[in-house]
């Protein structure tokens, strides 16, 4: 009877994915618990470590810091990248408020504006300078059309000459337009995206780059919160399982067996 209920509830082709999701969930939760006792060490992320220097430089030069989270919206598959970008926005805003530099956040997705307002307002409160936050000039909704948004960001670069440009989120064809324009005006740049299409463009132009999973880890890395940091270890266990499955799959296929392939398709 149990078997029948189970069969009817599971959707063929998604069973293995569900199993993996549950397994990774458990690894992440266990790692977060373990991190309460002992914080795991992990490699340095140069891009994120450079943020205080970028903010300091902007404050010294009396120029703004430009921040954007790219395209995509909160209900699409790229939403996690957007959330990852917003996690960094709070950190940058707090540092900038303390240093006396202005952050300009260019927005493509109107639905992000209330969230960004809350994040930046909080950051200025934490920095003890709530009165310095000006929502209208610091959070700018530019356009929901890709190239109108891209042109507007380029316009901000040319007119206001930010000293630093931080781009974390889902980026599309505008990535090269942004990175080249900000390079030309001499801005120090940090870019991060999980969209494989755009990584090469950022890699050749920007000073610092966060690749794929690194942007998701950014919030945890910057928070220095042991529980959040612990979750990164959990995701690494998931990566190990992926590697083991790849190796087993290759061996099985070479031996003429499709067992691993069938398992993945289950």
């Amino acid at each position: 009877m149990f078997g029948k209920i189970g069969d009817s509830m599971l959707i063929s082709g998604r069973i293995f994915a569900l199993g993996m999701l549950i397994a990774i969930w458990i690894f992440v939760l266990v790692s977060m618990e373990q991190a309460k006792k002992k914080i795991p060490t992990f490699r340095k992320m140069a891009g994120l470590d450079a943020i205080p220097e970028m903010v300091g430089r902007a404050a010294e030069m009396n120029k703004p810091i430009h921040f954007t989270t790219g395209l995509g919206d909160l209900t699409s598959t790229v939403a996690p990248q957007l959330v990852a970008g917003l996690s960094v926005l709070g950190y940058v805003s707090e540092l900038a408020a303390k240093a006396g530099a202005k952050v300009i956040y260019s927005v493509y997705q109107a639905q992000v504006m209330p969230i960004a307002t809350e994040i930046m307002k909080d950051a200025y409160v934490r920095a003890g300078k709530p009165e310095e936050f000006d929502v209208e000039t610091q959070i700018r909704y530019l356009s929901g059309e890709q190239f109108a948004y891209a042109s507007a960001v380029q316009g901000i670069a040319e007119r206001e000459r930010p000293a630093a440009n931080i781009m974390i989120g889902p980026f599309y064809a505008e990535s090269m337009l942004f990175s080249e324009t900000f390079f030309r005006i001499g801005a120090i740049q940090l870019a991060g995206t999980a969209r494989g299409y755009q990584i090469p463009f950022f890699a050749v132009v920007c000073d610092y780059l966060l690749i794929a999973e690194e942007i998701y880890a950014a919030g945890a890395y910057l928070s220095k919160d042991p529980i959040q940091v612990g979750s990164i270890r959990g995701q690494d266990v998931g990566k190990m399982i992926a590697i083991i499955l790849i190796v087993l799959g290759v061996i099985a296929l070479a031996a003429g067996s499709k067992i691993v392939l069938d398992l993945l398709k289950a």
């Binding site: 995509g72 699409s76 598959t77 790229v78 599309y172 064809a173 969209r195 299409y197």
Partner: peptide, 9 residues
């Protein structure tokens, strides 16, 4: 398509 969300979706 010009969008990865579409081509992969």
């Amino acid at each position: 398509t010009t969008g990865g969300d579409q081509s992969e979706g």
